[in-house]
């Protein structure tokens, strides 16, 4: 195994009774890379990340983290990973500093190193002077950064984050991602799950997961370019549903789907379609208010790759 990869996932399978949550997933994450697992709720992201930190035993396949097999050396692996679960669980009835001390203690951080790490974590979370606050009284963004601080008290080489920004305000999310990029610049490998498309754009590389299967991997721009064969048009028309039906029947249209209040239409040639589509719609009584070429988003890529439209939660 090459040391260039901090995480290697090989043909990973997890079955719960008769339900296959993760179905033969393989990917590798290079040192210092920010790798995103993108997919809708229930697609198997959390199950995968839990197998990575040894909380769940795989049904088949292998996972190695910083060169150690998770199934064989779970204790060794745990020395090197930091994990934040979906609920970024802290003790709400403990003070900020008590939470940090507790998790540091479990990782065996003590003495001068402990003092230094607590100071660092408070600084990082923006909680300087707030060490005596009761954790339960903190707002979401601070709590989330404190949880990150707790998870990295022992300077892990790999950081595993399961939906770290769920339920956090947009400003805090941006701040959080800045922290993630800093850590990655310091050589920490980050694996993050998300169902936010905009967040996925912050990742160096992505794996698209759908119903337990790996659909595609690549950088966000690779995925967007690779997924759409043809040009993408934004069409605003009314009524929308009728418009979709008509457009799907037009020659030269490869795919069409509803995005918010408009349609995204994949066509063979944008210029021809821009000229022809409004007329076709008008003849069916559908009024076109806007039609123009746009750059494909990750969501377009995801829809194209997964083959059907999914509710992916918030998509700004």
């Amino acid at each position: 195994m090459s040391e260039a990869f901090s995480i290697v996932v090989d043909e990973l399978v997890k079955r719960f009774r008769r339900f296959t949550a993760v179905n033969r997933i393989s990917f590798s994450v290079a040192r210092g890379e920010i790798f995103g697992l993108l997919g809708p709720n229930g697609s198997g992201k959390s199950t995968t990340i839990r197998m990575l930190c040894g909380l769940l035993t795989p049904t088949a396949g292998r996972v190695s983290v910083v060169g150690f097999d998770v199934a064989r050396d779970p204790e060794e692996v745990r020395q090197h990973i930091g994990y934040m679960s979906q609920k970024f669980s802290l003790y709400n009835d403990l003070r900020v500093v008590e939470n940090l001390e507790f998790f540091a203690g479990l990782y065996g951080v003590k003495g001068a190193q402990l003092t230094e790490r607590i100071a660092w974590a408070l600084e990082m979370a923006g909680l300087n002077g707030g060490e005596e606050l009761i954790t339960g009284d903190l707002a979401g963004g601070w709590k989330q950064r404190l949880a990150l601080g707790c998870a990295v008290m022992h300077r892990p080489r790999v950081l595993l984050l399961d939906e770290p920004t769920a339920g956090v305000d947009p400003l805090s999310r941006r701040l959080f991602w800045e922290l993630i990029h800093q850590m990655s610049a310091d050589g920490v490998t980050v694996l993050v799950t998300t169902h936010y498309m905009d967040e996925a754009e912050y990742c160096n590389r992505l794996a698209l997961i759908e119903a337990g299967r790996l659909v595609a991997t690549g950088s966000p721009s690779e995925l967007k370019r690779g997924a759409i064969r043809g040009d993408l048009l934004l069409v605003e028309c009314a009524p929308l549903g009728r418009g979709l039906e008509i457009i799907k029947r037009q020659p030269g249209v490869l795919d069409a789907a509803v995005f918010g209040a408009a349609l995204h239409v994949v066509v063979g040639a944008a210029d021809r379609a821009r000229a022809e589509l409004p007329a076709a719609l008008a003849s069916a009584g559908v009024a076109t208010s806007r039609i123009e070429p746009i750059a494909p988003s990750l969501e377009d890529a995801f829809v194209a790759l997964a083959g059907k439209r999914h509710d992916l939660g918030a998509t700004q």
Binding site: G54, I81, S85, K87, S89, L90, Y91, F103, L106, Y107
Partner: peptide, 14 residues
């Protein structure tokens, strides 16, 4: 219930 057990279990604790 609050999820801290999961957080503890990923530490090297036995």
């Amino acid at each position: 219930e609050i999820g801290t057990l999961e957080q503890i279990m990923v530490t090297p604790i036995r």
